[in-house]
Simulated assay, not measured.
Amino acid sequence: MAKISPLMLAPPLIFGAFAVLAGIGMFREDPNALPSAREGQTAPPIVLTEFPGKTLFDDATLRDGEVKLVNYWASWCAPCRVEHPNLQTLSDEGIPVYGVNYKDQLDNAETFLTELGDPYRAIGRDEKGRVALDWGLYGVPETYVIDGEGTVILRFAGPITQRVIENTIRPALEKAAGQ
Score class of each variant (00 low, 15 high):
Leu13Cys: 12
Leu13Tyr: 05
Ile14Val: 15
Gly16Phe: 12
Gly16Trp: 08
Gly23His: 03
Gly25Cys: 00
Asp30Leu: 02
Asp30Trp: 03
Asp30Arg: 12
Pro31Tyr: 04
Ala33Arg: 15
Ala37Pro: 03
Ala37Ile: 12
Gly40Lys: 10
Gln41Lys: 15
Gln41Met: 13
Gln41Ala: 13
Thr42Val: 14
Pro44Tyr: 04
Ile46Ser: 04
Ile46Glu: 00
Leu48Gln: 04
Leu48Arg: 03
Thr49Glu: 15
Thr49Phe: 00
Glu50Lys: 14
Pro52Gly: 08
Lys54Phe: 05
Thr55Ser: 13
Thr55Ile: 12
Leu56Glu: 06
Phe57Tyr: 11
Phe57Gln: 09
Phe57Trp: 14
Asp58Phe: 01
Ala60Cys: 05
Ala60Ile: 05
Val67Phe: 00
Leu69Glu: 05
Leu69Gly: 03
Leu69Thr: 05
Val70Leu: 12
Asn71Pro: 08
Asn71Leu: 01
Tyr72Cys: 01
Tyr72Ala: 14
Trp76Thr: 10
Trp76Asp: 09
Trp76Asn: 09
Cys77His: 02
Cys80Phe: 04
Arg81Asp: 02
His84Thr: 10
His84Glu: 10
His84Trp: 07
Pro85Leu: 07
Leu87Asn: 07
Gln88Tyr: 00
Gln88Pro: 00
Thr89Pro: 00
Thr89Phe: 00
Leu90Lys: 02
Leu90Gln: 04
Ser91Phe: 06
Ser91Arg: 08
Ser91Glu: 11
Asp92Ser: 12
Asp92Arg: 09
Glu93Asn: 12
Glu93Ser: 12
Gly94Ile: 09
Pro96Glu: 11
Pro96Ile: 07
Gly99Arg: 03
Val100Asp: 01
Asn101Ala: 09
Tyr102Arg: 08
Tyr102Pro: 07
Lys103Gln: 15
Asp104Glu: 15
Gln105Val: 14
Asp107Met: 06
Asp107Gln: 13
Thr111Cys: 00
Thr111Ser: 14
Thr111Lys: 15
Thr111Met: 11
Gly117Gln: 09
Asp118Thr: 09
Pro119Gly: 04
Arg121Glu: 14
Arg121His: 10
Ala122Pro: 10
Gly124Asn: 02
Arg125Phe: 11
Glu127Gln: 13
Lys128Arg: 13
Lys128Ala: 13
Gly129Thr: 11
Arg130Asp: 15
Arg130Tyr: 10
Leu133Met: 13
Asp134Glu: 13
Trp135Ser: 04
Leu137Ser: 10
Leu137Tyr: 01
Tyr138Gly: 02
Tyr138Ile: 02
Gly139Cys: 11
Glu142Cys: 03
Thr143Asn: 08
Thr143Ser: 12
Ile146Asn: 06
Ile146Thr: 10
Asp147Ala: 05
Gly148Pro: 11
Gly150Leu: 05
Ile153Leu: 02
